[in-house]
């Protein structure tokens, strides 16, 4: 019997701890805008993410089983990629204001994933395929991108409706995308100047137009990944079940999410629909992703019921 904790579990605890502290720091940063919180939160987020990838590698080295084939492993990758995508976008577009939300969500998913740790298990025959190593990371990464898009969409909607409640009218002029210069939020700016705390927080995050573009850019990472994930899933299914598409609940739920994001993409080609409507579609899209990830595994049985 092993008396000490395996390395992968130690790394998991380090990652979780780093995320929790980082999320707290960045959440406080969102409200206070004290720069030092950010300067402490960012390295912790990066450290957590690195610990996670090290954990997945360690687990593979220890068990010799691809570590993504159950909820424990896939949720771990999901959290790691969410944080990684966020970090990349945050460095590029200075999104640290949203870091607390993204990392808190990632930590929650990771903590939930840990409850599914059953120890080391070999894969069932249908999962013993090199496709597992390609398909699962792609799909999980797409989920991660959509999670980041979801957080930005929620921030967009909060700002949008707050502005609407302050200015007492629909923010049509500001309907994202119509005209760049009209994308500021005069109601929020005025309220912020008068010391309204909510308005002050929202005033410092990017404009609705910028948020809309950001959401689009993140969906632009997620949708090709999901498409590729579905394609490689189909190739795998072709090899293991005999048909590239069996209309199994997991596949169809993924197709549903794909359709939602295809709707997003098409609405986004239209000026008048870009902004609040597409932000809602992105929220619905992430709910459908969560349904596909957990709902189908836990409530609906099918060929995919490997708790993946």
């Amino acid at each position: 019997m092993q008396s000490h904790m395996p390395l992968d579990e130690v790394l998991m605890i380090i990652a979780l701890g780093a995320y929790v502290v980082s999320a707290l720091l960045l959440l406080v940063y969102f409200f206070s805008r004290d720069e030092w919180l950010k300067h402490l939160g960012i390295p912790l987020a990066i450290a957590g993410c690195v610990a996670q990838f090290a954990q997945l590698t360690a687990r593979y080295e220890i068990t010799h089983v691809w570590p993504l084939l159950n909820l424990y492993g896939s949720l771990s990758l999901f959290a790691a990629v969410s944080v990684a995508i966020f970090i990349i976008f945050a460095f590029r577009y200075n999104l640290w204001f949203a870091g607390g939300f993204v990392i808190a969500l990632a930590a929650l998913f990771l903590a939930y994933g840990v409850t599914w740790n059953e120890g080391s298990m070999p894969a069932v025959p249908s999962l013993q395929s090199y496709w597992a190593k390609i398909h699962v990371p792609l799909v999980v990464s797409s989920y991660a991108a959509f999670m980041v898009a979801f957080v930005m969409s929620v921030l967009f909607l909060v700002k949008y409706y707050f502005e609407r409640s302050l200015s007492g009218q629909t923010v049509d002029a500001a309907a994202a995308g119509t005209v760049a210069v009209r994308m500021d939020s005069p109601g929020i700016a005025a309220a912020a100047a008068q010391g309204n705390a909510g308005a002050q927080w929202l005033n410092t995050i990017p404009s609705l137009a910028q948020l809309d573009v950001l959401i689009y850019r993140i969906v632009a990472v997620g949708l090709p990944l999901l498409t590729l994930g579905i394609i490689t899933g189909a190739m795998w299914a072709h090899e293991s079940w005999g048909a590239y598409w069996q209309w199994d609940p997991k596949e169809t739920a993924a197709l549903f999410s794909w359709i939602v994001y295809a709707i997003y993409m098409h609405l986004h080609t239209r000026n008048a629909w870009r902004g609040v409507r597409t932000a809602w579609v992105s929220v619905v899209g992430f709910i459908s992703i969560m349904f596909c990830y957990f709902g189908v595994n836990l409530w609906i049985s099918g060929l995919h019921s490997y708790k993946l």
């Binding site: 209309w247 609940p249 739920a253 549903f256 359709i259 709707i263 098409h266 239209r270 629909w273 609906i300």
Partner: peptide
């Protein structure tokens, strides 16, 4: 495009029924 979006919505809903109702 908006008509296409309506078609997508219907397609999505039909797909969702198939996910929820055992086939």
């Amino acid at each position: 495009v908006l008509f296409a979006v309506v078609l997508f919505v219907v397609w999505g809903l039909l797909t969702l029924i198939g996910v929820i109702v055992d086939q």
